[in-house]
Amino acid sequence: MENRVLLECKGVTKNYPSKMALNFLNLTIERGRIIGLLGPNGSGKTTLIKLISGILTPSSGVITVNGNPIGIETKKVVSYLPERTYLNSWMKVRDIIAFFKDFYQNFNEHKAYDMLKRLNINPNDRLKTMSKGTKEKVQLILVMSRDADLYLLDEPIGGVDPAARDYILDTILSNYNENATVIISTHLIYDIERVLDDVLFLQNGSLVMASSVDEIREQQGKSVDELFREVFRC
């Protein structure tokens, strides 16, 4: 039987000099889910995502993806969209696609060009000349064009207009497959609640709730968004 467990965090702690960003986090995530990672600013959402993608090292604890500790094997199957633009600005979109294709075996070039076309982005444009919004779209295209096992999207709908937000959610849904899991971190729950299976609530570096969206609605008689506002009322 195929192992459905995709991601496991065991006692993961991350200390920064000034504060504890994650506090002994235990978490198991299966394949085929779309998961909302929710919490106020500074609750540890970005830290967790960066730990899984391997650009942060935990202070203690173990993270595995497909049973492998974070490393080359996990980086092959994890597709990460950071909350910032990280692409070399002197490159053309075409060059970056070639770059991704060179380094990721699971990168689907046709899918990338298809999505660029649908968004009217010229592959010969340089990133330097693009607006921030367009750059973010290019990054999303790159990340979603990989046939990965785990997609980590950090605040993908943060500062985008409603049309772009719908496009992003649409892209996530149409790329869904039952072997892959998508983790979306956000504090704008209302917009994405309907696309989520499960939600994880983080507060001050601890997991305060892990539940399915319908469970919350069934048991609490309110949307996740409403619940979130209650739990994190400040």
């Binding site: 993608s53 391997g54 650009i55 490393g71 080359i72 094997e73 980086k75 092959k76 994890v78 990460y80 950071p82 910032r84 633009t85 990280y86 692409l87 070399n88 380094f103 990721y104």
Partner: peptide
Amino acid sequence: KNLLGDEGYLMFTLPVD
């Protein structure tokens, strides 16, 4: 800059040691 700055987000998520 390329490894330990913003571009490191790309470089260190590549499957490369």
